[in-house]
């Protein structure tokens, strides 16, 4: 009996803590984004963050995109060949990448590559009192540190995912046409015929939402990191896990809206 009560107490406290953190994070991020509409504008910081977050993730995104397209072509060919519908390979690869795999895999790679370093960097700024130093110089750390990173992920991720899509489609074409011998005209024709603006829009909405999620979660957890070495390590792990799970949950929700 006591054990059951303890369990309820434990679950209740956990739920309360989670709710509190979500609320705290939402407040912090909306405060940050609120600063977007008041001068001074964030020119230079944004460029520096776009460099680190966007350009820094370019190679890994391109590699992931290429291999995703290639493996999709292989797997798709294997399945479609069983029905004698190899000519559909182009549209199968394109739809999978544009609607689903581009946004999700791109966002997950971005979380690992850039999200973790955002959290660690802000956490270390907390440990080394750099955030307090900004505060003492009458500069709001939320505006100076958090806002440019959120905006940078929000801008960079859709661009990176578009690059992922293009590279993935190209790699899928190479494997499908040059390696597996699907007719080039049929491959391209099917791709162009079956992909609609609606599919592209689904992908773009996902990219933007995932970018916002990564930016908000990773900056928030770094900002609120316990100012010790373990605190920053813990925050970084938590940021990657939280962001990844949120991306997958949001993916399901957006997909069900856009079907």
């Amino acid at each position: 009996m006591n054990g059951v009560l303890n369990l309820f107490g434990f679950m209740g406290r956990g739920l309360l803590r989670t709710t509190e953190r979500i609320g705290d994070g939402t407040m912090l991020c909306s405060r940050a984004i609120g600063h977007l509409f008041t001068p001074p504008w964030l020119g230079r910081q944004l460029v520096i963050q776009l460099y680190a977050i966007g350009f820094g993730s370019l190679i890994i995104i391109a590699i992931t995109g290429a291999f995703t397209g290639m493996v999709l072509a292989l797997q798709g060919y294997y399945t479609l060949a069983k029905f004698g519908s190899e000519s559909l390979l182009g549209s199968a690869v394109a739809l999978s990448i544009i609607r689903e795999l581009g946004p999700v895999l791109g966002a997950l790679m971005m979380t690992g590559r850039a999200g973790s370093s955002i959290t660690a960097e802000i956490g270390i700024m907390r440990v080394t009192e750099q955030l307090d130093a900004l505060e003492m110089m009458a500069v709001n750390p939320v505006r100076q540190v958090i806002l440019p990173r959120i905006i940078a992920t929000l801008i960079a991720l859709p661009l990176l995912i578009a690059i992922f899509d293009v590279v993935g489609l190209g790699a899928g074409y190479l494997v499908g046409v040059n390696l597996l011998g699907v007719n080039a005209g049929a491959y391209i024709g099917e791709t162009i015929a079956k992909v609609t603006m609606h599919d592209l829009l689904t992908g773009w909405v996902k990219s933007a939402v995932f970018g916002l999620l990564i930016g908000c979660i990773c900056t928030f957890l770094g900002y609120r990191a316990v100012p010790t070495t373990e605190g920053v390590a813990q925050a970084t792990t938590r940021a990657v896990v939280t962001a990844s799970v949120s991306i997958l949950i949001a993916d399901y929700i957006i997909t069900s809206f856009f079907l």
Partner: peptide
Amino acid sequence: FQYSALLNS
């Protein structure tokens, strides 16, 4: 500050 807290970027 104790650890100087210069902005490291």
